[in-house]
Design a protein around this nucleic acid. Sequence first.
RNA 1: GCGAGGGUAGCCAAGUAUGGCCAAAGGCGGCAGACUCAAGAUCUGUUCUCGAAGGAGUUCCUCGGUUCAAAUCCGAGCCCUCGCACCA
Length: 955
Amino acid sequence: MNISEDMFRIEEKWQKRWSEARLFESTPDGRDKFYATYPYSYMNGLPHIGHAFTVLRVEFQCRYRRMRGYNVLFPFAFHCTGVPIVAAAKRIKDGESTQMQIMRSMGITDRQVKKFSEPEYWTRYFPKRWENSMRRLGMSIDWRRKFITTPLNPSYDSFVRWQFNVLREKNYVRLGSHAVIWCPKDNIPVGDHDRVKGEGETPTEYTLLKFRTDEGDFLVTATLRPETAFGQTNLWINPEADYVRALVDNEVWILSKEAADKLTEQGRKLTVKGSLKGEELTGAYAFSPTMGKRLVVLPAPFASPSKGTGIVTSVPSDSPDDYIALKDLKRKAENDTLEPSIAHAVVNIEPVEIIDTPGYGTLPAKTVVDRLNIRSQKDKEKLDRAREEVYREGYYKGVMLERCAEYAGLTVDAARSAIRKKLLESGDADTMYEPSGEVVCRCLTRCIVKVVSNQWFLAYGDQKWKEDTHEAIASMRFYPPLVRKQFEHVVDWLKDWACVHHTGLGTTLPWDDAWKIESLSDSTIYMAYYTIAHVIQKGKITSDRKLGQAFFDYVFLGIGDSDEAAVQSGFSRSKTEEMRKEFLYWYPMDMRNSGKDLVGNHLTFAAFNHVAIFPREHWPRSYGVNGWITISGTKMGKSAGNSLYLDDAIARFGADVTRLTEAYADEGFDDPNFDTGFAETAGKRLLQMLDTAKNLNSLDDSGENSMDVWMMSMMARHYGGYIAAMEDMSYKNAVKSALVDMQNSARWYIKRRGTPNRRTMRKFAELQVMMLAPFTPHVCEEAWEAMGNQTFVSTQLMPEPSTMIENAGALAGEGYLEGVIADISEILKVTEIVPEKITIYTAAKWKTHLLIAEQTGNRNDSSAIRKQLSSGVATREMEKFYRNLSRERQSGRLKSIAETAGVIDEHRLLNENTDFLAKEFRCRIEVPDGDAAGVEDRAGRRENSFPLRPSIFVE
RNA sequence: GCGAGGGUAGCCAAGUAUGGCCAAAGGCGGCAGACUCAAGAUCUGUUCUCGAAGGAGUUCCUCGGUUCAAAUCCGAGCCCUCGCACCA
């Protein structure tokens, strides 16, 4: 028998039956509802087991809730908004090899691939593939509600337009300007994925400082450290580079040609009046407002015209570069290789102490240069290290010195912004942006920062909006609970979000069609759209029906009346009212689960937008967050060469095993592990379960005994653990309870009982099938059917946990027996005796009575018992007993010993099981009555016996 | 730097909130046995050290503390992972 073929046959069979029975098409009814969602995935690729992991966390919960009596809605859709699809299509068109390789790995042949040069094709192709994969995985999704985003789906498009109109009315969408990394050749913003170099680099803000020359022009320098303005000793200019004189407002600025271009892109008006070489300015003087004197301009080959303005202030006290450059110049001055006028200026320059950095003194640049033994400007590597160290230490620990006027005593951090502000106000400074590091566009052009004006923002920085969102977060549940803190923090640091772009696919802004709404902004409240999507789109991924404001106002907000909404939408009035009712039934969303990457954006945005648009009772109820899947411990990633597509996983392991392995990978917030080793063997376990179900009828229904009581108790215990785990979304624990723990108990039960009882085994099989059904629904349906049920286990109600009862006596008794077996095994192992006979002496009754009396602190009882005993029992045994008693008291075990000893009869238990023990140890077993007189005491062991610790003698 | 989380036996990992029943669940891997012509699969046992009697010793990043008692509480330190955005 081929295991995987068997599994595939079962999986197909049940997927077909579910679909025929429309089992997961959810409609409102009288039951409590449970509405859960997964953030729709981006349609530029196929699902891999990482996507599957996240979706399955929703799926498991949905299937579980369905079996606990909830009316469950689990919809699915496809995200197409933004640049990636368009960019990938373009790469196909260009025949780019990496992209072609990616397509091939997804099973797309070179002949088919041409079609993908058209972005629209992606939006039709991948949703199909995703739905197919999800169906093959056995997901309990209501597929009637699927859709795609962007204007390619006019109905959804009108929904997003409605959303933005509402946001704008409430003043949550605002106009502003915004700095982006920009390619000057392509004239577009360059996101991380479009960069050849510089991923993660962002625009940073430089302070421009202006120095008036004797001619009345301004030399303009750029710095990230305006607080060093009090330590300037001179200016640096690159003698070889080209500079321009440009008219800015009414001033003439001197700066590098590149800098002038950049400032123009950043929205500044510059009129270039003329150009000059850097060397024309060396030896000139310019006035520093912070120093209150003129500074000399010195030649510096290291001053790059493409960085900043190409002119730099020199602060040798705090800049290792400046310090070392100055040192070099001084050396040249001494050797008479400098022009006399410059040489004269150079020898008089000394660093000015402005910042005290603990551990570095007041001249940190000198300190570090000396320590690292940097000899010249050519020592690039060491200089980089020095610069970084001084910068970091100064920023976090440095304090401004006396000569920094009103800033004295401030930390560098505080002084920086204060000084900058002051200089900006006095007109001695200005602002310029630069990328935080070098960024190169795919077109191989070096990127700059552009300030885009008239940019629309979602005002996540708005204080009131933040407060409301905090309330929403406070009212929510989180899985795992510790992510709550993350969310609280994100709400605080979120700033205004540029919500529109010029490129990619997306809904145009209703009031300005030059802009398209970007992908993280058109996907924040669409969970509301799911509730009516099947009515509007009739199960298709797109619908041409356009819907107006009044329609959505009525259906989602209850504003206006159904007549107007009906007219505007073309739906009948009753259809419109039906949609309103359906929305009200399903909303709010009870749970949304995603990968942890969406905490800092999407999930928080969704909370913000719900707060802005919907009344409090429709805010989300809970979020689940999970980590990134690893495959057998190594990170999954295309670059690492070990990504596993869902389709491939299903083909290799089957849907149920894939699901079970994903469930077993669950690890809260840390990265879960898809354990292929577990997957390899899981299929067999599932088929064993199926076999058990099939073979129930061949079992005897002989009378029940204590082992059946025990088995039922263990089932109750495992079921309790299972329920708790499911409620917490701790799927690994749930699988452990349902599969491992249940199985182990059954094995022990069968071993102990010899032949299992049919009724007990049936209860066991039914319970286990139900417990596993959320995880491995196909094989569970098969087993359920094999047990003679006509219904689907998928919609079967699980038992109420309170109806499952643990029998404490049965559990304690069996636990006791296992303890005795373990002790005997231990003795046999150590002594290496092959036993002929094992004698087990249980503690005499009086010991148990005494122990309980002592534990409960009933002195009267214990002294009475002692008195009674004093004549009959040897004092030595009494002493031993008390010694053991105090030891157990010390260890804290006394209480549980007393409790257990109170509910079991040790002697009877062992006596009843001598046959089993004899079989287990292959020898004779004797259990003399500890209370009977004249019992033979082998090797004087009898008197050592203690409650729950019988004495054992092996011979 | 800011924010969040973490360091447990060969590996992965539960336990930490509520200290004692914790030499510490479970899974992988290893070892031994059963089955088999054999291999694989499966099943059983075992897997910190020592031990000819169920015991003892040493463990849960490091150091120190609280306590009759610490993987668990407190303090200090070392190390690791993730996020810090306009990018899905």
